[in-house]
Design a protein around this nucleic acid. Structure first.
Lengths: 153, 153
DNA sequence: CGGTATCCTATAAGATACTG
DNA sequence: CAGTATCTTATAGGATACCG
């Protein structure tokens, strides 16, 4: 059976970038696979499978799609003394999805919190300073939501 | 027929905040409805319907879910000389999703661009300075991706 | 205008068995 | 270990007709 492809990206159609991004991040599993890869450095099939508790056929399908979409790369991985195994690693484009996941995490923490509080925080490496995801100007300062506007180019 | 509910948020289960956020933003239509509400100030059923080209039964279902989830509020709206109409408006929690949509838009612009370039930009009201969505420290400066870490609390 | 109600198809989700 | 293959159910998506 051919692996099901992502919905195609027709360059003519006037999808906005949000829609185009959502055609890569098709569904919940796609987000969660990227979460494992980006936040927890999961690389191996069996680890995705166990951590996400996802059926193997679905996992295969999502990994394939994410590789196709250019956000994961399938490489080989060799542990000393073992045979090589496939490893799925974020590409640079995949890495950039960290901002999207950070924004989702921040929103979830604020608006659908667990009773016992969040389990993960975003910090700066080294300083351990807490980080937020925000709109910022190129020259530095972040801008409050009510001063953000979206405009046609 | 009862409107189909969002998947429930069991407060016991160890969903991370990303997963919890995705239980509100169940699917592509949910994101796109919020895009219309937040970026284009769409409020009325007929306007969502026409702009998204979505079937009425699905639109009803997504609007209901988003109201249930507390990101949209159903209020009344009266134009002079007309009868009142329902209006769906973002709640404060809904407004905060702007950051998530901004992050998706930015990622889409960079990594799945249209051939003729992006159609929307994020700007600061007043100054019209271009805005990015980024990780920032509380005391101001934004932090490059490779210095962002996620840590268990 | 803002929906309901039906009906149908496509895709996602998931359990289970099997394989190089 | 890293998948395929098969089958079943659930949910999403959509066309169309109708209604107060």
């Amino acid at each position: 059976m051919a692996p099901s492809r992502s919905p195609e990206l027709d360059p003519q159609r006037p999808y906005c970038s949000i829609e185009r991004a959502l055609i890569v991040l098709t569904d919940r599993w796609a987000f969660l696979v990227m979460r494992e890869a980006l936040l927890y450095d999961v690389e191996r099939f069996a680890d995705f499978r166990e951590r996400l508790d996802i059926a193997t056929n679905i996992l295969t399908n999502r990994l394939d799609r994410l590789v196709q979409a250019g956000v994961l790369e399938r490489t080989e991985y060799r542990e000393p003394g073992s045979r090589t195994r496939p490893a799925y690693r974020p590409t640079p484009a995949g890495r950039d999805l960290t901002v999207v996941l950070g924004a989702l995490q921040q929103w979830g923490d604020e608006h659908v919190p667990r009773e016992d509080g969040p389990t993960m925080t975003r910090r700066e490496q080294g300083s351990a300073a807490p980080l937020r995801v925000d709109f910022v100007r190129d020259d530095g300062p972040s801008v409050p939501l009510d001063r953000v506007e979206f405009a046609r180019v």
